[in-house]
């Protein structure tokens, strides 16, 4: 259930819409150059590595690790009451690919902590990937 004023992503942008379309199918994807295979994340439709405009979306393994985080102790938006945590994640598959996630409260986190995607279906057609800690063995 979406909170009344919760900010939702624009999901039909020319450059980034494909990411959210995949997320709605519970797939994590990154923009990729079809010519040189470079990752173009955050998404754009031109590859500055090889000059190609031929780009697509590549499925990536939805596991990663904690790179940094902040615990918000002061609310500036009613949809995100304090305390809550914003986590910066790097993918296992390619640490140069990062994502941001939201965690309620102030869970215990540490550098390199394993995390995995949980797709949050907010409303029809609007899904965002979230990241949650994987219980460590």
């Amino acid at each position: 259930m979406a909170a009344i004023d919760r900010p939702l992503p624009v999901v039909d942008d020319e450059e980034t819409g494909g990411f959210f379309a995949a997320a709605a199918e519970h797939r994590l994807v990154v923009r990729t150059c079809n010519s040189c295979a470079a990752t173009l994340h955050l998404p754009k439709s031109y590859c500055h590595h090889c000059g190609s405009w031929d780009v697509g979306w590549r499925d990536v393994r939805p596991t990663g690790s904690v790179y940094s985080w902040t615990v918000l102790q002061h609310s500036i938006h009613e949809a995100f009451p304090a305390p809550c945590t914003v986590v910066l994640v790097q993918l296992d598959e390619d640490p140069a690919i990062r994502f941001v996630g939201y965690l309620p409260g102030a869970p215990e986190l540490h550098d390199g902590m394993p995390v995995r995607v949980r797709f949050e279906d907010i409303e029809p057609g609007v899904t965002i990937p979230q990241w949650e800690p994987v219980p460590e063995a």
């Binding site: 900010p7 992503p9 624009v10």
Partner: peptide
Amino acid sequence: GARHVGGNGTLDEFFLPYGLMA
């Protein structure tokens, strides 16, 4: 106060929906 944020080159859609705003 628009419900949907980001798009149009801002890339805010990857951040603001997670509470990362300031």
